[in-house]
Design a protein around this nucleic acid. Structure first.
Lengths: 340, 340
DNA sequence: ATGAAAGCGCTAACAG
DNA sequence: CTGTTAGCGCTTTCAT
């Protein structure tokens, strides 16, 4: 066995039959003598034979492998998506080639190159924060490689996409704040070019206007590198003459930062100031006070994206479509109770 | 381009030269006419050529791909390891095929089969909780596929391994509890067959004995399915006539469960009862009180395992060795301060 | 029911 | 410097 892995040739030689017969027997094709077939299968097991998928792929031009690129799998939201993808894929015998862009456009490019070279049957991508130009995605399409974008999607390309109802989620959150008597509601936003941040802003503005509240520029603050700036941005809001009485945050980490700062200022949550986040990170239920947040179905998102892609690969569905999953407002202790 | 991806043959035809020349030019081999080479490279770019790694792999018998199996990537500890692995691998142009066992032995077996069929150059595995028999790993070795185990390792196989100093970490934790005047220290253990849980128990016992404290069977409670049973186990300890004054927990999720229960019993942490966890999950710093815990360098663990494997693949090092990474006691607010 | 042979895309002798 | 050829392991005609 020193010569590496066992091949159908080894089996054929041992049994003194041709490799085509072995191949046929192994795949359970109809026109093989029952006895031959039995002997082949036995020998295969005895020699611990595993089919060489590389050879199969070269022949069939299909690898049964899909590629994923996410910014950073250490972020729970993404690991949950990746988990969903992998489970769906493995159920239908697809392998998953896994890459991280680390929020770098250049790395995303390199990842993509590697995945294309590996001849993945399809691609699942959540764009890096740096990515603005999507030329590389167009090149994927030219090569007829099925592509599904998720979460960090782009409007500049016509392909299948999975996202969540950001705008509606934000609307529901801000509406709840208004319904619980908050009037000066601030938005702790993400970078100005981040699509999801802008969509959430839309929902925020829409909810304010629907309640007859005029948005105040002063109350919208952008954090450039999400985590780091959040504390500063919060401090800035708290130093206003006319302080906010609620904070809607672009995501949970920002909200958690905000909570820390607010606590230091000795303000009571939610009596003095209410807070709502976005994502429903597992941490959010455990901190104190437990964070009210707009939950995104991350695991489901992964599953949905994977299904969409595999359907496309198998040619069940050639049209590109966008699936928008629902968000849900999870009420916890950083918001006041609704008076019935 | 309807015919799928571009091959060196397409380039050769367009340029009216042989495919071997194209192959040589593409790989920048010395003995190619500078002009020919230039024309090949230009044409390659023009046609958007990407080398077919499948074909290369079949020829070279190397895929430049490593396989990972982890129980569940949604657990931060594992996603952090996976992240470390992927970064190291991509730096040296290795792809990562990613699988999850979901703590199921059967799924682990299936994953392994798929990865072997994909002819990965090496394997990185953290065993499922169900896995007791390691026959499948021996078969991997018979096939001469380099294998590195990490975190959930097995003593029954001679291969490279990466783990952390569980015993020493536990010792440090329990010693700290003793040094801060705790005397009745309980151990909230994991399943009885879980290696890491047992190693941590050793450290626990060792620290007690070193301080002249006789271990009390009553104070060692096993949780079978880590998360679910923790609450019950804690309640059980609190109902003892002679209650514990400290809790050493097999991991952070268990510790966090314990904290909830203790709070409900209106006991003060750490005044009435101290708690120490294991892992340093990101949550642990954010809960209240912030959890004192034994930190495991998860990201580093991934990097280390990947390096070990790749060295082995490249034949730099054929011997199997075990790397034990250091743990660190991170003091937070579930333990008392040390009196100087 | 089985075998022989071609070919998937690429690399590596071996010739020229 | 370049072309020809064989072959990696497998599937699939096409014969027999």
């Amino acid at each position: 066995m020193e010569k590496g892995q066992v091949t159908i040739r080894d089996i054929a030689l041992k049994l003194n039959i041709s490799i085509s017969t072995v191949s046929r027997a192994l795949r359970g094709m109809a026109d093989v003598n029952a006895d031959t077939k039995k002997r082949v299968l036995e020998m295969a097991r005895e020699l611990n034979y595993e089919p060489n998928q590389i050879a199969q792929s070269l022949r069939s031009n299909r690898t049964n492998t899909i590629g994923i690129i996410v910014p950073d799998v250490q972020v729970h939201f993404f690991s949950s998506i990746v988990s969903g993808i992998q489970k769906v894929a493995s159920k239908v015998n697809y392998n998953v080639l896994f890459c991280q862009s680390g929020e770098s456009y250049q790395t995303e490019l390199n990842n993509l190159k590697a995945l294309i070279a590996s001849r993945v049957d399809g691609l699942l991508i959540s764009l890096s924060r740096e990515t603005e130009d999507i030329e590389h995605l167009l090149r994927v399409q030219q090569k007829n490689i099925p592509l599904v974008l998720f979460d960090r999607i782009s409007d500049d390309i016509d392909t299948s996409k999975v996202d969540v109802s950001d705008t509606d989620g934000a609307f529901k959150a801000v509406k709840y704040l208004i319904d619980t008597e908050c009037r000066r509601i601030a938005y702790l936003a993400g970078p100005k070019n981040l699509t999801i941040s802008n969509k959430r802003m839309e929902g925020y503005l829409h909810a304010l206007r629907a309640a007859g509240i005029t948005p105040d520029e002063e109350l919208i603050v952008h954090c450039n590198s999400l985590k780091e700036d959040a504390a500063g941005a919060t401090a800035q809001l708290l130093s206003l003459n006319n302080k906010p009485d609620a904070l809607f945050c672009v995501n949970d980490p920002v909200a958690i930062q905000a909570i820390q700062v607010i606590k230091k200022h000795n303000l009571k949550i939610p009596e003095d100031i209410s807070i709502i986040g976005f994502t429903d990170d597992p941490v959010s239920a455990l901190i104190e006070p437990a964070l009210t947040t707009v939950a995104q179905p991350s695991h489901e998102m992964g599953q949905c994206a994977a299904k969409l892609l595999i359907d496309q690969i198998k040619g069940y569905d050639g049209t590109s479509r966008t699936v928008t999953l629902d968000t849900k407002l999870v009420l916890r202790n950083t918001t006041k109770l609704l008076n019935p």
